[in-house]
Design a protein around this nucleic acid. Structure first.
Length: 290
DNA sequence: TTCCAGAATC
DNA sequence: GATTCGGGAA
C-alpha cells in the first residue's frame, strides 16, 4: 500500500537517533525502555534508561537485586508500580525463559506490566516480528490519514490492532518494522495532537483528513485525567519519596507528610495493597524486599 | 491546562 | 467500558 510504503520510506530517512534504536541495543534494553515510556515522554526516559541499563544490563542482574532497589532507581519517573512490575518481569524471565527476553507476543503478554502495546513493541522493535504496534501516536495517524477524523477518540484495542495490521506489508518484516516505528514517529513529531504540521507531512497527499478539508472531530473523547494537585496520586507520590530516601519510615513520620488523615491513610493503604510498601503502624514502613 | 511510546482493575 | 495510577514540561 502506498500509505505504508511512504511512511516506511520517510522513517528510514528521518528516524531520530534514540538509544533503543542503536544497532546492537539488547532486547532487554528495548523492554526496559518501553516500560519507562509508558505515559512518559521520551526526553524524560533517556537518562534514566542509561543509568538503569548500566546497573542492570540483563534480566538476571535485576532479578538478583531487590525490588526496593528497583523502586529507588526508578526515582521520580512516575507510576512506580512499573518499577515493581519490571523487577517481577525480570524474575519471570530469569525463571521461565532462561534469562532471555522472549520474542513471542503471548509470552510477553504473560509478563507483569506488559500489555497489548508493550508486548508488540518489544516483539517488533527488538526481534523484528511483523506484528501491529499501536500507541497513542499511531492511533492518531490512522484516525486522520485513514479514517479522515481529526482525533482518535478512546482506545479500542481490537479495532486499533486490526487497522494497523491492515497497513503492514506481508512477508517483509523489516518494512513492517519501519511502518510501525514510522507511524509512531510521525504522530509524535509531525502529526501531533495539538498543532499538526501538515505542510511538512510526508503523507499529506494520501491523508483522508486533509482530503476532507480537516473536519473538526465531534466523536467521543478519551477520558480526561483528574487534576493532580490534591489527588491521591500526589499523596502516594509524597509517601513514596519518603520511602525511597530512608530505610524505614515510622507511622508518625507518615502523618507529617499530608494533613488530611483520611486521604493520607487511603494513599498508604493503596501503596501497601500494591506492594510498593510493606510494614504496619508498629514497625513502620519500608520498600518491599529491602 | 493538557498531554505524554499504557496497564491493571474495577 | 470507566477508573486509577506520577510527575514534569509546554
Amino acid at each position: 500500500m502506498e500509505l505504508s510504503s511512504t511512511i516506511a520510506a520517510w522513517y528510514r530517512e528521518n528516524a531520530r537517533d534514540l538509544p533503543w534504536r542503536r544497532p546492537g541495543f539488547s532486547p532487554w534494553g528495548v523492554l526496559v525502555s518501553e516500560i519507562m515510556l509508558q505515559q512518559t515522554p521520551v526526553a524524560r526516559v533517556i537518562p534514566r534508561l542509561e543509568q538503569w541499563l548500566a546497573r542492570w544490563p540483563t534480566p538476571d542482574a535485576l532479578a538478583a537485586d531487590s525490588p526496593a532497589e528497583a523502586v529507588r532507581a526508578w526515582d521520580r519517573l512516575g507510576y512506580p508500580r512499573r518499577a515493581l512490575n519490571l523487577h517481577a518481569a525480570a524474575t519471570a524471565i530469569a525463571e521461565r525463559h532462561d534469562g532471555e527476553v522472549p520474542a513471542d507476543v503471548d509470552a510477553l503478554l504473560a509478563l507483569p506490566g506488559i500489555g497489548d502495546y508493550t508486548a508488540r513493541a518489544v516483539a517488533c522493535f527488538a526481534f523484528r516480528m511483523p506484528v501491529p504496534v499501536v500507541d497513542v501516536n499511531t492511533r492518531r495517524v490512522i484516525a486522520r490519514a485513514v479514517h479522515g477524523q481529526g482525533a482518535a477518540g478512546p482506545a479500542r484495542t481490537r479495532p486499533d490492532l486490526a487497522a494497523m495490521a491492515a497497513l503492514l506489508p506481508d512477508g517483509d518484516a523489516e518494512t513492517a518494522h519501519d511502518v510501525n516505528a514510522g507511524a509512531m514517529e510521525l504522530g509524535q513529531t509531525i502529526c501531533t495532537a495539538r498543532a499538526p504540521e501538515c505542510d511538512a507531512c510526508p503523507i499529506a497527499e494520501l491523508c483522508a483528513w486533509r482530503a476532507a478539508g480537516y473536519p473538526v472531530y465531534d466523536g467521543p473523547l478519551a477520558p480526561r485525567q483528574a487534576r493532580f494537585e490534591g489527588s491521591d496520586r500526589q499523596v502516594r507520590g509524597i509517601i513514596m519519596r519518603a520511602l525511597r530516601s530512608a530505610e524505614s519510615v515510622s507511622h508518625d513520620e507518615v502523618e507529617t507528610l499530608w494533613p488530611d488523615a483520611v486521604q493520607r491513610e487511603r494513599a498508604l493503604a493503596g501503596l501497601l495493597a500494591d506492594g510498593l510498601a510493606v510494614g504496619d503502624p508498629e514497625t513502620g514502613y519500608r520498600l518491599p524486599g529491602a
